[in-house]
């Protein structure tokens, strides 16, 4: 589950799996912008069946925050 999430997030951000750490603030990644944000939203929807409103999404700051949301919905 965790590996699947990291791989999917890395793909959305055009990064390598090993560049992503749970404690990272994902908006600080160099490749994070309004376009990759859409890729993350699409990834959450298609890979994990999670439809997030932006005001909820905006409360998640770290990779770990996002993973917690993904893993708790299963």
């Amino acid at each position: 589950m965790k590996d699947k999430f990291i791989t999917a997030l890395a793909e959305a951000l055009e990064m390598e799996d090993n560049e992503i750490k749970m404690e990272d603030t994902f908006r600080d990644y160099d490749t994070y912008d309004s376009l990759s944000e859409l890729s993350i939203l699409a990834m959450l929807d298609s890979d994990f069946g999670i439809e997030l409103e932006m005001n909820e999404y905006n409360t998640y700051l770290t990779v770990g925050d996002l993973y917690k949301r993904v893993s708790s919905s299963k």
């Binding site: 309004s34 859409l38 939203l41 439809e51 409103e53 932006m54």
Partner: peptide, 24 residues
């Protein structure tokens, strides 16, 4: 913060929210 510019008489779009609306 990206330096995008417009006036209040231009249209704007809150892309991520619209994106979510469409997908849902």
């Amino acid at each position: 913060e990206y330096g995008n510019m417009r006036s209040d008489e231009h249209g704007y779009m809150n892309g991520a929210d619209v994106f979510n609306f469409v997908l849902r």
